[in-house]
């Protein structure tokens, strides 16, 4: 067993950190889009719009039932062969698309469960004062569902940050891709990937601190 090359690792840290913004961009964009799509899917699952409901069930089933890596390959390498207009799609866009569709399916289920959990009498009270379905969802039901779903949704965000490393397989030079290139020159694979692992870990830990503050904020209406 040889000793770790700490100097090499310290030198590599700023290089890899330079790719953190790209990772956060992919995860952030994916999260925002997945939240919007997931909430729409969840509201549909609760309202059960005829015909549409069937497609939504199929969508959720497919994107939960197949691996993220397979989905990314389908979008990036597969779809352009069928729809030639998609050849213009770059790896970053394809990764964000894949992350969005994949995680929206998971989020839809958590948000749906949280929506259904809001006490029945509040739905009726909202209807009784003449609110439209949209007003009731947006102003009364979803804010309360958000509180219940928040811990799960943050977990999906953490998964998503780590999932951006798969963009490397689409030829995107992000943290993982950069480390791979560096290691190919130095042959210090263990050091290079250890630096990547530690940086991911630190990002997720910082986020977990944010999660506590978010939950405190969302719980403020429920303190006795």
């Amino acid at each position: 067993m040889r000793a770790l090359d700490l100097d090499y690792m310290l030198g590599l840290v700023p290089v890899i950190l330079g790719y953190v913004p790209l990772t956060l961009f992919m995860a952030g964009a994916g999260m925002v889009l997945a939240l919007i799509l997931g909430a729409l899917l969840a509201v549909e699952r609760v309202a059960k719009v005829p015909v549409l409901d069937w497609f939504v069930v199929l969508f959720i089933s497919f994107f939960r039932g197949t691996p993220l890596l397979v989905q990314l390959f389908l979008f990036y390498f597969g779809l352009p062969q069928i729809l030639p207009s998609l050849t213009q799609i770059d790896g970053v866009t394809a990764a964000i698309m894949g992350l969005t569709l994949h995680f929206s399916a998971y989020m839809a289920e958590s948000i749906r469960a949280a929506i259904v959990g809001v006490d029945r009498s509040q739905w009726e009270a909202a209807q009784s004062i003449g609110m439209t379905q949209g007003q009731m969802m947006w102003r009364i039901i979803l804010p309360q569902a958000a509180r219940v779903a928040a811990p799960t949704l943050v977990n999906y965000f953490i998964d998503m940050i780590k999932g951006t490393s798969l963009a490397f397989t689409l030829g995107v030079t992000e943290m993982m891709g950069a480390a791979q290139k560096e290691a190919a020159g130095s042959f210090l694979y263990f050091e290079a990937f250890l630096v990547v692992a530690i940086i991911y870990w630190v990002i997720v830990e910082i986020l977990s601190q944010g999660q506590k503050r978010l939950e405190t904020h969302l719980n403020k209406a429920f303190v006795r």
Partner: peptide, 20 residues
């Protein structure tokens, strides 16, 4: 909706909006 806007209702379980 128009009919509901002519009425107000008080519920057995209050039905207060918990987030407000």
């Amino acid at each position: 909706l128009a009919l509901r806007r002519c009425t107000g209702m008080v519920f057995q379980n209050y039905g207060l909006f918990a987030n407000k």
